[in-house]
């Protein structure tokens, strides 16, 4: 009997995956909300990379953006306010095989979940973390967030936010063992897609801050930024997002920025006159805690029993 070459065999379950394969329930975000763009971007990434829905996990906290897992067809975990990162770390610890995404918001990450944010950067376990930053609490109806601009009116500060906002980029870039920091915006879909693609390929924790419109509560804040290209600074570099042919038209303000330069990244991040868009920092050689936590996977039952007997013998009397 003649044998077919192995490469000719095909697993009957394998087929080309289309965008429809990643559709969850119908999104219920407000019309014009930046979350819609984010959802489409991640779905396209999964389609482009042909990642089976069952091999991807999206973990989120609580807030408007954290509804994300319900609207994408993958494994999802819609957890607790501020705490998606510890859950994602627990998933990653013993599952190097999964494609792992974390969706969080400015209240979730930069207020109630701050401790986890700081330490997750240091752990640098492989995952793509997207901070959807609309500068306001939306789900609970317009309260001040840590990134709300000073003077911004909200239901908790009707006279205007009393303090200047914190800068998530500067904070992340100052944490030991930071390995990937980027910023994009929901209204530049091609840029968003290239950032997510780089982040997903990054060997470690990739932190993306997504500037995101909230047409319902913060339109007055975001509309001027979105519509004035001079307030956005495009970062380009072969190691980050490379320069594109039509950049010049969309982004009059551009800066060649080497993402291996941490000091420059911190400078760029702290600029208040423009919103930098691009990869600020990237270090593919940073220490990865998930390589430690996965040690011992697949040890046989017989080996475990033998080790256990040795442990017990130490206590024998």
């Amino acid at each position: 009997m003649t044998k077919l070459p192995k490469a000719w065999y095909m697993d009957g379950r394998l087929r080309h995956l289309a965008l429809a394969d990643y559709e969850g329930t119908t999104p219920r975000w407000c019309p014009g909300c930046g979350d819609h763009a984010a959802l489409a971007t991640v779905q396209r990434l999964l389609r482009d990379e042909q990642i089976p829905p069952d091999q991807a996990v999206v973990v989120s906290g609580i807030g408007c953006s954290s509804r994300f897992p319900h609207y994408i067809h993958t494994y999802g975990f819609h957890g607790l306010h501020g705490r998606p990162l510890p859950i994602a770390e627990g998933v990653r610890a013993r599952r190097p095989d999964l494609h792992l995404f974390v969706v969080t918001g400015d209240g979730d990450c930069c207020a109630i979940g701050t401790a986890h944010w700081i330490h997750s950067i240091r752990y640098n376990m492989k995952m793509t973390v997207m901070l959807f930053d609309n500068n306001i609490y939306g789900l609970t109806k317009m309260q001040t967030s840590p990134t709300t601009p000073k003077g911004g009116r909200s239901n908790t500060h009707p006279e205007g936010a009393p303090l200047s906002p914190l800068n998530p980029l500067s904070i992340t870039l100052s944490i030991a063992n930071v390995s990937f920091v980027a910023q994009t915006a929901d209204w530049v879909p091609a840029h968003f897609a290239s950032i997510v693609k780089r982040a997903h390929a990054h060997p470690g924790l990739a932190f993306i801050r997504v500037l995101q419109r909230c047409p319902h509560y913060m339109d007055h804040h975001w509309e001027p930024i979105q519509s004035d290209p001079r307030r956005q600074l495009l970062l380009f570099h072969p190691e980050g997002v490379p320069a594109q042919a039509n950049d010049q038209r969309a982004f009059p303000e551009r800066l060649e920025h080497d993402p291996s330069d941490l000091a420059r990244a911190r400078e760029v991040a702290s600029r208040t006159d423009v919103w930098p868009l691009g990869v600020l920092y990237r270090n593919p050689c940073a220490e990865r805690y998930d390589l430690d936590t996965a040690v011992g996977l697949g040890m046989s039952g017989a080996d475990k029993l033998a080790a256990l007997e040795r442990e017990l013998t130490q206590f024998e009397v």
Binding site: P86, E89, V91, L98, H116
Partner: peptide, 9 residues
Amino acid sequence: GFAVGAAYA
């Protein structure tokens, strides 16, 4: 939370 994530996985 880490335990919850590991349990889920």
